[in-house]
Nucleic acid binder design. Structure first.
Lengths: 210, 210
DNA sequence: GTCTATAGAGGGATAGAC
DNA sequence: GTCTATCCCTCTATAGAC
């Protein structure tokens, strides 16, 4: 990969995160990269193609950097801890803002939609592995769809990131509330045998009736 | 309010939902409304002002239409039921897509940010009332921040809507998984006295240690 | 591979007639 | 209040020199 190509990819990521998908143009990205505007089209054909490539590569790299950490998660408390540091680091790096903007743009651009789906799938795969391990000994295992839960977690992060840009304090409140709820699941697993049996029986009954 | 103003507001809402915030221009909105492009600026000054007004009014009207239904919610099961019909109707009407696009645009436009914050606050107020009633007799009451939970629910809807545009099947899976989890809370409230005491004691211990 | 220059389209916004 | 006409800007994309 040439220096210019790499510079454009990095700049595209920066600009999408900072200016939003609506503010991302060939001129702005090229200026950010310190290269000529025409090189966007020489190397990537279209602006959309550049943005899609940049987002895909960034997401893949980011997911890979969390693979081991997520796979090693063994309890709800650990999952919540990893989730919080993951959220903080992804937010600080701008990856979360980029993902949110990518998904907003994906609503009417098929190429961005494909990139967004790829990125979400990459995250979902790793999160699902962690969720599977965490639920292995939980009474929740029988009624919970792990794939669905992993997707809900991913989508929730996106929503929180957008909310963060609108009301930072409210978003922190929301995150804290979710962590409290996550702790409840941990508690279910740590109950004594009697209470645990009661919960389990109740869960079984309810899931049949649904 | 003149016919033209109303037509422009309705058209702005439609266009933002259909074309996204990046595809919303004075010309497109005016064409959708069947009026002259210059009238956007005569009536609203700027395109952004028109979009912000349209989103604010739509959100206020929508929240108002759910006020009674949400306030009457008495159990988790009821809250989940209202949540599902609310989600379906808001999605069908395009309000959810508009909110998601508004929040994406809000990341770099202060006027849109103000509109988005207003809309989210309006929803949060009503959702929080419902959450408060639902948690009134729950062991979760002591450790749960109701305002934070309401905000998490709102942000979650936004994330799910964006995810829906990228992977409709995955979004449905996520929604179903969340409903399963919601049912767990309901179960906690319906446990027998022994189990309930065990859960309550455990919750109290954990919340102190956090 | 990189540059300049530019075509061609669309967009925000205003002036001025009606 | 509404219309036409227009200015000026930014945008994508390409042609062609180097």
């Amino acid at each position: 990969m040439t220096d210019t190509k790499a510079a454009l990819l990095a700049a595209a990521h920066t600009v999408v995160g900072r200016e939003g998908i609506a503010g991302t143009s060939a001129r702005v990205v090229a200026a950010e990269a310190g290269v000529n505007q025409a090189l966007v089209f020489y190397h990537f054909g279209t602006v959309t193609e550049l943005v899609a490539t940049a987002c895909t590569e960034a997401a893949d790299a980011s997911v890979a950097s969390y693979r081991e950490e997520l796979a090693a998660v063994g309890s709800f408390t650990e999952l919540l801890a990893v989730g919080r540091t993951l959220h903080e680091r992804e937010q600080a790096s701008g990856n979360l803002a980029v993902m949110a903007q990518l998904m907003a743009g994906a609503q009417r651009d098929p190429l961005l939609a494909a990139a967004a789906q790829h990125a979400m799938e990459a995250w979902n795969r790793e999160v699902e592995i962690a969720v599977r391990r965490v639920l292995a000994d939980s009474p929740l295992l029988e009624i919970t769809d792990r794939a669905g839960l992993a997707r809900a977690i991913g989508a929730g992060f996106i929503g929180l990131e957008l909310y963060e840009g609108v009301d930072a304090e409210g978003a922190q409140q929301a995150l804290a509330a979710l962590e409290q709820l996550g702790a409840v699941a941990e508690i279910l697993d740590d109950l004594g045998p009697v209470a645990r049996r009661a919960v389990r029986a109740r869960l079984r009954r309810t899931s049949r009736s649904t």
